[in-house]
């Protein structure tokens, strides 16, 4: 009973502190989301769709401090990065390396980065990757078999594999 009374006497200062905590909570969560968000970058060195921008003959790309990757015309490679902002060092042939800053769209897991477009500063050089024909994920029906109130989960001993087909409960 007393607790209820105390609860109702929350002063403005206390409300402020609580509100502040809630804001901090959400801010930390958003920060974790942005800083931890992993992206898979597909790096392209291909002609653009309309053919206006040509792929490079030979280009060497370094993302952040990862190992440099060599591309011939028409190549595509992939790498995984964390967070949105990246420094990309591009070295075309024997020319001086060019450093570019790239911001990835936050809510995409897989993006396509076109090196020729980036060098030509043609938007959009980063596009969300949409697979042409999505391969069906491997069959997995295991999610359907849940033991009724099984107190034995992960570490449950798997029963010896039965040679005879096990019957299902009627």
């Amino acid at each position: 009973m007393n607790g209820v009374n105390k609860e109702s006497k929350v002063g403005p200062r206390r409300m402020l502190v609580r509100g502040g905590l809630a804001v901090v909570y959400i801010a930390v969560m958003v920060m974790a989301f942005i800083l931890g968000k992993g992206h898979k970058i597909l790096i392209d060195n291909k002609d653009s769709q309309d053919g206006a921008i040509k792929a490079f003959e030979n280009v060497n790309v370094t993302i952040d401090s990862q190992d440099p990757i060599d591309f011939m015309a028409g190549d595509r490679d992939q790498t995984s990065v964390r967070s949105q902002w990246h420094t990309i060092t591009i070295k075309v042939g024997d020319q001086q390396p060019v450093v570019k800053k790239v911001t990835l769209p936050l809510n995409e897991n897989v993006v396509l980065l076109s090196i020729p477009k980036l060098m030509a500063n043609v938007e959009p050089y980063v596009v969300p990757f949409v697979p042409a024909d999505e391969p069906p994920p491997p069959a997995d029906n295991s999610g359907n078999s849940n033991e009724f109130t099984s107190p034995t989960g992960t570490e449950a001993p798997a029963a010896p594999t039965a040679p005879a087909a096990a019957p299902t409960n009627p």
């Binding site: 974790a32 989301f33 800083l35 931890g36 968000k37 992993g38 992206h39 809510n107 897991n109």
Partner: peptide
């Protein structure tokens, strides 16, 4: 959401 590492 593919949030990696300790941030995840």
């Amino acid at each position: 959401y593919n949030i990696t590492g300790v941030n995840g």
